[in-house]
Computed example of a mutant assay.
Amino acid sequence: MGLGEKVKLAAAKVSGKGKEAAGEAAGNDRLKAEGKTEHAKAELKQAADKAKGIFKKH
């Protein structure tokens, strides 16, 4: 994963947390769920990349 992709994933995580917080504050369950989903997707992609890196080293 290149630097650009890492930045995009970090931005998606932050954006997801922001949407989640905004949904919580506004009482908007749809926005809250959308934020959680966006955050989780970014975390999964990062975890997959880390796992890929571990196997490349060996």
Rank of each mutant, 00 (worst) to 15 (best):
G2N: 13
N28T: 01
A11W: 01
K19G: 08
K56R: 13
G18C: 12
K32R: 10
K32H: 03
A51F: 12
A25Y: 05
E43C: 05
A51P: 00
G53P: 02
A11Q: 10
A25E: 10
V7L: 10
A22R: 11
K36R: 04
K8T: 05
K8S: 05
N28S: 03
E24H: 06
A47R: 07
G4I: 04
D49R: 04
E38L: 15
E34F: 03
D49Y: 02
A51T: 02
G23D: 04
L44T: 14
K13N: 05
G35W: 04
E24T: 14
G27T: 09
K6T: 11
G18T: 15
N28F: 09
A33T: 13
M1I: 09
K52C: 06
A48Q: 15
K45I: 03
L44W: 06
K52H: 08
A22Y: 11
K17I: 09
H58F: 14
K19P: 00
V14P: 00
D49P: 00
A26C: 04
G53H: 04
K50C: 02
A47T: 14
K17Q: 14
E20P: 00
A21E: 10
F55W: 07
A26P: 01
A33H: 04
A42E: 04
K13F: 00
A26D: 06
K41H: 11
A40N: 10
A26F: 06
K17S: 11
K41P: 02
A40G: 02
A22E: 11
K57S: 10
A48D: 15
G16M: 06
A40E: 15
E24W: 09
R30I: 01
G2T: 02
R30S: 07
K50L: 11
V14K: 15
E43H: 10
K56V: 06
L9P: 01
V14S: 14
R30D: 12
E24L: 15
L31F: 01
E34G: 05
A42K: 01
E24S: 13
E5S: 07
K36Y: 00
L31T: 08
E24P: 00
A47I: 10
D29H: 00
G2C: 10
A21Y: 10
E24Y: 11
A40T: 03
K36E: 06
A26S: 14
Q46H: 05
Q46T: 14
K17G: 05
G18I: 06
A22N: 02
Q46K: 14
G23I: 06
L3T: 06
G16V: 05
K52Q: 08
A21I: 15
A42G: 07
G35L: 07
E38W: 08
L31C: 01
A22F: 11
A51S: 07
A11H: 03
K8P: 00
G4D: 02
G27Y: 01
K56A: 11
A22V: 13
L44H: 13
K19I: 00
A33E: 10
A40L: 14
V7I: 15
K17L: 15
E43I: 08
S15N: 14
A22D: 12
E20N: 13
L9Y: 01
G53W: 01
G27S: 07
K6F: 05
K52A: 12
K6D: 06
L9H: 02
A48T: 09
K50A: 13
G35E: 05
K50I: 09
K56L: 02
